[in-house]
Design a protein around this nucleic acid. Sequence first.
RNA 1: GGCGCUAUCGUCUAACGGUUAGGACACCACGCUUUCAAUGUGGGAAUCCGGGUUCAAUUCCCGGUAGCGCUACCA
Length: 501
Amino acid sequence: MTGQKKIRTRFAPSPTGYLHIGSLRTALFDYLFARKYGGDFVLRIEDTDRQRLVPGAVENLIKILQEFGLKPDEGPHKPDPKYAPYVQSERLPLYNKYAKTLVERQMAYYCFCATERLENLRKQQEAQKQPPHYDGFCRDLSATDVQAKLAQNAEYVIRQRIPKTGVTEYDDLVYGHLQFKNELLDDSILVKSDGYPVYNFANVVDDHLMEITHVIRGEEFLSSTPKHVLLYKAFGWTQPVFFHLPLILDEKRQKLSKRSGDVAVEEYLKKGYLKEAILNFISLLGWNPKTADEIFSLSELVERFEVEKVNKPGAIFDVRKLDFIDRQWRKRLNLKSDDDPLFRRAQTLLKDFPGNRKVLELVYPQILERIAGPSDLEERMAEFNFYFKEPRYDASLLLWKKLPSAQAKLNLQKLKRFLAGLKPEDFIATALEAKLKAFIAEQGMATGEALWPLRVALSGQKNSPGPFEILEVFAKSPAGIKIALNRIDKAISMLSDISKD
RNA sequence: GGCGCUAUCGUCUAACGGUUAGGACACCACGCUUUCAAUGUGGGAAUCCGGGUUCAAUUCCCGGUAGCGCUACCA
């Protein structure tokens, strides 16, 4: 056991200002793998693309990871002097040093080609239906030529010198044995003209220096991995185990991206999804426990996680399943409304409705109860316009379970008369319910046959809050009770029309 | 175009080479319930195509097709 190296995984996002749902999944698997096998989970920030820098992104990343319970053991927030810094833009001298080494070993070379020439080259190749690739113009520049150019302060990049022959192969934990012909690999750029390294390079250097044992990342890196393998070989470093995760796809089967809709984890949080549900849901994308259960907490996931259970095909992100899992979690957690993000979301939405707060406070618990999932919260909320607008509905809606129209009409007439005799202070949902139910029983009506038509008459909807709540809301304003009674009248007359037919 | 990966219900997926191809989401019907939700019961719904290997192929091999990914001085 002494020779065993400690397992170390890393999550290496670019600070783009938000956390991509796919990135969260990667972070989750990094975390699960590290926890499962007693390793460390490291956060490294890949900010070598200076065009895409977003201020504050790193702090946001750490915060949100923490919120999900995926707190890295190491990272910018908690550096280990042995590996720090954890932000790539602070590691420039390192990349520089290693790039030089590569050049010395003839495994990389200076390239002075102008962007314009490269663009033309690519256009030509595309026109001739050839795979676009660097033509090796600077690959065999003599040492003196290079020195001369450098002395002139010519702009340059450093390219990887890929062997012209041979095959590069590696084993992936998920995808198995993979091999690539070297001749098809491009002499891609390692260090950009601004002195910043490119992903393919910085990644390898850092993973080695940080002693990462398992590289867990999305499948999109499957075909750039041979270049990484070649770099490990060039340096004489042992390569980590590669562990690629199947892609998360949108409903069009494309890699989930900003074009697909919401990809930012923050968006889902804002919509009111529980973080437990989000984590649970994405864990099921490309991985399955092989049991009937599928509701798991983070620690349950750690317990059940196994690499063998990771699938190869890309998985479509189906928000309806997320809704389902969210409901399950909501039930499991039994949240009080103040702790429920969905509730908070509902509250902010309600602010946009043109009514008094009292109305909303009364109906919101029902909104939440009847919700299918946060994804259609907005739609459901919009239905509550019935209070402010005259409802329009089909008379057949009033007929619950094939209730005869004459019966419905009679019931409504009785109810209306009863309601008309009540005092304004009687219109408090709980008290009203007791009174109304007593009356219904006394009249020998079936509860459903009385309350269904009443509720529909008041709201005009198949799904709405209950009649007691609606009536309480109406009774808040002096004219409200009259409006409610008018609606019942209208329903009665609609039923009369039906019975004539 | 080149290279790579992938291929079971609409979706997520299960099935030592032998199953009436299973489960979950979604959908539909019915029951229960004042509606919804929840719950119960039932229903429709899949092995991409073609060859092999084998007594036996969803499973192994080959080919095709399709989808996706990569093919940037993005990651």
